[in-house]
Design a protein around this nucleic acid. Structure first.
Length: 319
DNA sequence: GGCAGTCAAGTACGC
DNA sequence: GCGTACTTGACTGCC
């Protein structure tokens, strides 16, 4: 179990998601912003490795207008060495990476323009992960999308479009249950039809349940991940004391998190904490999880890597 | 420097 | 048919 947080590190002064208005777009501005965003991502990765937070969601805003037609600059070629260097660090430290396109990326939209923009956005996300040199365990998580007045048809459209995706994108795609329209059961049904793994969001599962207990939900979602997909990913958020449904809590609720750790045994997964104060709660969660045998810290990963390399060097015992 | 309006983008829902 | 929530921070123009 690696623990992580999404996109931004509030303890650092830099941001990896700086952007600008379309009206002020220029290639110069793009290059300058992207260079700064990449430098900040590098800082975050180092910070995470030092602090035992080995799961990171990379912001979709890393490349300003990354999938927008306005951006015709070959950023993927020009910045390829920077991406490659950062990717080596990610792998060296043993970090797991995910990305999560936003609410406007809708693979099941009946509108061709929306679909085209969504496909471009998924390709952009996959391009980032490819440039980082990450394998198929680095995932892009999306929701099913809208209902469009006919849920069955909307789900069928999602499946059909996943099946039509090029392999490089499809290999990275995972589907997540949402808090309003599509339950875990719906996501599992999609998995059965097109094979992409299911990412369980425990908070959404509480708000939009399908009758499964947490353990049953973890078991069902975990069964959709193959070895090449890596350990299942799970999104977790503490509930709001008296808040609006769906929005994330400001900070980690210790008692709730301890209960979650206990109830989620023996399942192992990489855990994304969707909490507004980001790495501060993730640090607290890592501290709480430190005594859990599933928890993976930087040092133990390095130990594991050393043991593996030693095993390769040492001839196997003769039997 | 601080504030408020606005931002590339979609969908659902209440009125 | 329109405004707003979702979720969200931060860019930008104005004072």
């Amino acid at each position: 179990m690696r623990i992580g947080y999404p996109c931004i590190n509030l303890s650092l002064t830099c941001r990896p998601s700086r952007t600008f208005r379309l009206a002020s777009y220029s290639e110069e501005r793009l290059c300058e912003t992207l260079a700064n965003n990449l430098a900040c991502l590098e800082e975050i990765i180092y910070w995470n490795a030092v602090h035992d937070l080995l799961f990171l969601r990379i912001t979709s805003d890393l490349v300003p207008f990354g999938s927008h037609p306005a951006n015709q600059y070959p950023w993927d070629q020009e910045f390829a060495p920077d991406f490659a260097r950062i990717g080596e660090q990610i792998q060296g430290y043993g970090l797991r990476i995910s990305m999560h396109p936003g609410q406007y990326t809708l693979l099941n939209s009946p509108r061709s323009k929306v679909l085209a923009a969504s496909l471009a956005d998924l390709r952009y996300h996959a391009r980032v992960l490819d440039l980082l040199g990450l394998d198929q365990t680095a995932k892009i998580q999306i929701h099913v999308g809208g209902l469009y007045g006919d849920k069955k048809a909307a789900m069928a459209r999602f499946v059909q479009r996943v099946n039509n995706l090029e392999q490089t994108v499809r290999d990275r795609l995972v589907v997540e249950n949402d808090e309003r329209f599509y339950t875990l059961e719906d996501a599992l049904s999609i998995h059965a039809q097109c094979g992409i793994p299911v990412l369980l969001d425990t908070f959404h599962h509480e708000l939009n349940p399908d009758g499964r207990s947490l353990r049953e939900a973890l078991a069902a979602a975990a069964a959709t991940w193959s070895q090449k997909d890596g350990l299942p990913m799970v999104d977790y958020s503490s509930p709001l004391p008296k808040g609006r449904t769906g929005s994330h809590a400001y900070s980690l609720n210790k008692a709730h998190f301890k209960r979650f750790l206990k109830e989620s045994r023996p399942f192992d997964f990489d855990l994304m904490l969707e909490v507004k104060n980001k790495e501060r709660s993730a640090l607290l969660a890592a501290k709480i999880a430190a005594s859990d045998p599933r928890f993976v810290s930087t040092s133990s990963l390095i130990r594991l890597a050393l043991m593996e390399s030693r095993e390769k060097e040492t001839p196997p015992n003769e039997e």
